[in-house]
Nucleic acid binder design. Sequence first.
DNA 1: CTGAAAGCGCTTACAG
DNA 2: CTGAAAGCGCTTACAG
Lengths: 327, 327
Amino acid sequence: MTTIKDVAKKAGVSVATVSRFLNDSGYVSADAAKAVTAAVDELKYELNPVARSLNTKKSNLIGLILPDITNPFFPELARAVEDVALTYGYTVVLCNSDENPEKEKNYIETLKKKYIAGFIVTSNQLDAPHYANANVPIVALDRAINDKIPVVSSNNKEGAVIGTNALLERGCRNVLFLRGPEELNPANDRYDGFMEAIRQSDADYQVVTCPFHFADSQKVVEQALQDNPSIDGIFASSDVSAAGALKAAGTIGRQVPDDLQIVGFDGVAMGEMLSPGLTTVAQDVYKMGAVATRVLIKQIENKKIEQSFYEVPVKLVIRGTTRSVAE
Amino acid sequence: MTTIKDVAKKAGVSVATVSRFLNDSGYVSADAAKAVTAAVDELKYELNPVARSLNTKKSNLIGLILPDITNPFFPELARAVEDVALTYGYTVVLCNSDENPEKEKNYIETLKKKYIAGFIVTSNQLDAPHYANANVPIVALDRAINDKIPVVSSNNKEGAVIGTNALLERGCRNVLFLRGPEELNPANDRYDGFMEAIRQSDADYQVVTCPFHFADSQKVVEQALQDNPSIDGIFASSDVSAAGALKAAGTIGRQVPDDLQIVGFDGVAMGEMLSPGLTTVAQDVYKMGAVATRVLIKQIENKKIEQSFYEVPVKLVIRGTTRSVAE
DNA sequence: CTGAAAGCGCTTACAG
DNA sequence: CTGAAAGCGCTTACAG
């Protein structure tokens, strides 16, 4: 392995000069610069990041803390984070937290020992001390908010308005809203959006809370559909719930979209594979990840960030679970 | 930050003794051990992994190189890798390669500079020099094989036999096999299994090659079904292809499973959400990841590994795209 | 069994 | 503009 010492010797300067040149810190004469460049080239020298970290107490590692990569929302997010991290020379460490504060705390602590540069986190524990006092750059995704931590999130409320209106415009007169877990900010924003839109109309509606799980949603919807056969539209606050609703419709014998229309929220790949394809309010998950990473890197590099809240637009994707709008 | 020096001072011994004690290397008297333990406790000392790495040229980072975390096969794998890595005190770095040799090479090189402990990789480039000469522990997943690198893989061939027989036992007389990309080992093993099983029967069959993509598979199957209406069974070598086939069946107006039965391969979560639910040969992806990680860590810790090939069993999951077997 | 010392490969005041 | 030297926090022969 060739070290900075070898380069210094070959270039006929001191290691201090080489270091200054490499880091573009402090003065280096044109001659010295040329000699060092040549030596680096010739020796194919590459700086040892571990040695550097030990000095600077900074690495180019970024920690990505999320509940569970297995949840269909997160792979695309992880992909985006990694893509832009790579662009800026950072490497990403994957941390599945299971929403468990202990695990989160552990990750933060062990990674801080490695001089991690910063974290991107999806968590509901953002005001827990291990975040509040982490003393390291953090950007939050989606979920919770803490005044010190920038957040990037979808425009959930507006998305819900759009989704609700999609149903209304297509003739629904009795809409079932599948509300997500109440401890989730995005789920609440979607609820607010639904309420806002439905109240502007004179349609009937009902709200049912259920987790973002397939089987649960299926059961809840079967029940609701049996209790109330006049339901002619379902707006689910996640695609997985929507898939459950679609399945329930099938087992109950309701025709989608002729007899019952369904709109989901998320835009995961699976939606396309269902029959009929799922109409949904798609989040731009990749973009959320990319924005979050850029904001984080700005923080890391001590550039000022303009805002503490970034909202990523959402988009209605029409597929087979809704009819064409009657004009 | 408290360092080994602080501990040494408090314990009244040298840093060398503290280090030996902490690493359980070399002799340390009972008295010294006790004093050090007490000091560590009192000072809440935690070893600095960066400083250690600089000396030992070893970190506790594991690199996970895979084509794309966004592909539904990989999140569960990543989860498994991380879970067992955590258990053994390792941290995982996520590397999306897009099957691009340049990206793989880059990751290997930049991570080696960080003294990465080892890699788990899913790639077709395993005999490329950047792997062959990586000079770092590697375990391969699924895909390709290189004599020096241990592989863990599903029992693909047997799985294909099981899947084919599932169709045959349920009365299929003309089976369409959706073969995956020919450059993929697992896809070929599945093909071999299909051929073996189908030849034992007197059923008709045909084989069509198509990538593991939804839209492509849908198109290919639509065509095949139109050309040959007597097809009464489809065995897809991936769940995504199977989803495409199911959709195609719908648009062509074939009834599944009464008129046409479908079996997939993989066992991804989406299979359950389709209507009807997808019968599939499920891989135990989590187990594959867990096994691979354990094998890797054994290598890292210089324990001998018993085999160079680990096969994880596969399991038939019966859902709605197949009928009940007529006895 | 133990400690002084060199070394891992860098960075960074400081003096010149 | 430049170099000698100390230091980041550990590990590891080596001598005792």
